[in-house]
Design a protein around this nucleic acid. Sequence first.
RNA 1: GGUGAGGUUCCCGAGUGGCCAAAGGGAUCAGACUGUAAAUCUGACGCGCGAGCUUCGGUGGUUCGAAUCCACCCCUCACCA
Length: 432
Amino acid sequence: MSETLLQDLKARGLVAQMTSEDELEKHLADGSVTLYCGFDPTADSLHIGSLVPLLTLKRFQEYGHKPLALVGGATGLIGDPSFKAQERKLNDDSTVAGWVEKLKAQVSAFIDFEAGEKSAEVVNNLDWTQNVNVLSFLRDVGKHFSVNQMIAKESVKQRIDREGEGISFTEFTYMILQSYDFQQLNASHNCTLQIGGSDQWGNITGGTELTRRMNGNQVFGLTLPLITKSDGTKFGKTESGTIWLDANKTSPYAFYQFWLQTADADVYRFLKYFTFLPVAEIDALEKADAERQGRPEAQKVLAEEVTRLVHGESGLMAARRITDALFSGDTSELSEQDYAQIAQDGLPSSALKTGELSETPLTTLLSEAGMAPGGKQVKDALQRNAVIVNGQAHGVEDNMNAPQVFAVEKALYGKYFLVKLGKKKHHLFTLG
RNA sequence: GGUGAGGUUCCCGAGUGGCCAAAGGGAUCAGACUGUAAAUCUGACGCGCGAGCUUCGGUGGUUCGAAUCCACCCCUCACCA
């Protein structure tokens, strides 16, 4: 690799801010550096918002550095106030402890633990926080923080300035805890770099400062950009909610579809953020797409690359299998095995109880199957003939006609009904 | 503890006795056009196929009638102590 890591990161647009660029460049060139990134347990799975930092740890490792993934067993109990509009509810400690275990496993999938000197490690800040004595913490650590400076941080400013909001001492202290993590990791692992989202800048610089004061060492910080979408909506959410990394919460198929639906205006940027394809290759793809009329290739490349990174080759194959089946237009050509496979691969599916059909309107049936949040949406689709069962469109007149719509003789292979609501939502009903 | 401002349907936010299932915006969903993209236009958007049913922090009350008035309570925020 003739390019340096920092050059690559910059070319990808992955650097938001960093502490003293020249010195960091020199430091990284000097040899293997130990760096860390924290992930707080705020749910039982990470979502794609954490993907950029995770992949960045991996990028560092590929360039010969040693990544530490910190799981916030302690900080997760407090809650990071950075750029949060409101004070958050505290989660109880057994819940957080359970989440910590899940995150550990998830984070581990992205970095290499068998890489000699640069082997990754997972650490938990509860380990060095839980037995700290309040008084010594206040005297040894707290003394290094100026409340004036803390209040001035952009990340808490809106909470302090905004009419009608406030910040508890608990959340206000979060920054000190995170700073303490950096100082501890510097002492125990010779960790000299922290990376994180751009919202973490205040917390990270707090840590570099504390480490300098307590350990006398110069350490560095680098933040990654906030992922934005061209249409201004929040990245990582869809109609069905958050896109999680856990295959049980977001199936590889749904995950693949998420990336496939990326807007043209975002897709090349996302390729740089979320894949390991060389920047030159991405630029070439963009050029090729622009020259060719019609549908670009980029979304497909993005979906394949990211799905493979998160769910592996088998997850990707499953996602593609379903996608090909559902969007090729002609689902009647699918074999019986294909249907069995589709359900197993992650397409939402449910059993159909023939006995209850006469009592159940389609609106209830489909919304309860999870195809729509309420019967109203199904009704709306029915009025537009947008409900398609095994290739046949149905309108409102069939609403109370479930037994006919789902008549056994119409089932494919005697048991399957593939229902399509609108253009993108599919559900497989199985008799029995 | 005191003073002030607040708590409305996913979010923001109007509404101060009937015309309120509750303005407007956002988000979301469906349709048209497309390329499973964007933009645009159309429709939906408490629940219910429907008759209808249940909402405006909570509980009681006034009234023919309450999101709106009264009492008490809970919660949030700001400032002061």
